[in-house]
Simulated scan of single mutants.
Amino acid sequence: MTQRKVLTGARLVLPGGVVEDGRLTVDGSTIAGCGPAAAAAPGTAAPAGAAAGAPETETYDLAGHWVVPGFVDMHVHGGGGASFSAGTHEEALRVVGTHRRHGTTTMVASTVTGDLAELARQAGVLSELAEQGDLAGVHFEGPFIARNRCGAHEPALLRDPDPGEVRKLVEAARGTARMMTLAPELPGGLDSVRLLVDAGVVAAVGHTDAGYEATREAVDAGATVATHLFNAMPALGHRSPGPVAALLEDERVTVELINDGTHLHPAVLELAFAAAGGERVAFVTDAMSAAAVGDGVYPLGPMDVEVRDGVARLVQGGSIAGSTLTLDQALWRAVAVDELPVEDAVRALSATPARLLGVDDRVGSLEPGKDADLVVLDGDFRLRGVLRKGAWVVSPEKP
């Protein structure tokens, strides 16, 4: 018989707002119902014909807690001491497991700049994990990016975005390519954006030297994401607004923000939300292998990264090299430090990236019929439980 879980007493963050003293019911791997506890029909705590408290029903009293949708990270490179760029099932699954324990129940695997043949090989490995449901797809970050804005990407491996090469990488992912970050001002950039759109792949503007007009052209060509807005692109200027203004002002664009306290000042975060609105912001980690591990020296593609006090920088040159962030930390910071409304912070971690990736029919919100992916937080917004497809990854009984 299908096992049922009943979560009671928590604040539920639903698409329509926060429900106090809520009740959420899970049947198997699916959400069966959610809403005010007082509105629950008699007998909904157990399957028909079963007594309340029968072995088929697990009931969790979560008074004083929050229940929010499982997080969706559309830009993550590694964690737990492992990296997607290693191109092995073992390391990729270690990354997945690490971030799941921190609430990310859906994620896209991001690569870093490398030799095209090696990137194609990595894409083939990652596509297998996407096909079996461990990943939501593949994100290629580089090698088609600007040399002056390459950040933690190997300059010697950068190249102009030739549409033929772009197509080969997309094909190597065997239908699981979800996004590609490129610099649209480079030769072939706009044609590559159009190719990606025709292939059903999200074209993202990032690691770019594009000006305001060139960025607008890229959006008109079909680009719909700003890769870690403000980082690895020209700064906003009052006479030269650059890509930041073009990306913030256009309603077709979703902007990624890395909310770790290092990549963005809180005032800049507030500016992005004010300009784009809560429905166009997606929190991402851009995490590298040190996430959830600690300080030390780690590989990031062909580069070496040193992590000190949780901040990752290239050993050579000192550029910021991704983050050590997990999305539960991003949510805590958004609410406790940045003082964002809970609904806006949760949307940026779930519904918005799910919609952009085209998986919002299954995940991204707490609604009947969707996957039972959710996160339990205590009153201080610290993670206490993670449920994925109806199975506890982290049980709220064992924080």
Rank of each mutant, 00 (worst) to 15 (best):
K5L: 14
L14Q: 02
L14R: 01
V18A: 03
T25G: 05
D27W: 01
G28Q: 05
G28T: 04
A37F: 04
A39F: 07
G43I: 03
A48D: 15
A54D: 13
E56N: 03
T59E: 15
H65L: 02
H65Q: 14
V68I: 13
H75F: 04
V76N: 05
A82D: 05
A92L: 04
L93C: 11
V95H: 04
A109Y: 01
L116T: 13
L119I: 14
R121N: 12
G124Q: 13
L126F: 02
A130M: 08
G133I: 10
L135P: 13
I145D: 05
E154K: 08
V166P: 07
V170M: 01
E171Q: 15
R174M: 09
L182I: 07
L190S: 00
S192R: 00
G206K: 02
Y212F: 15
E213D: 15
V219P: 09
M233N: 03
L247N: 02
E249S: 13
V253N: 03
V284W: 11
G294L: 13
V297R: 12
V297M: 06
P302T: 14
V311G: 00
V311E: 07
L314G: 05
S319N: 15
A321Q: 06
A321V: 06
A336V: 11
D338Q: 05
E339G: 10
P341C: 03
A348G: 07
D360L: 11
L366M: 07
P368M: 12
L374N: 01
V386H: 00
V394K: 01
K398N: 12
P399Q: 06
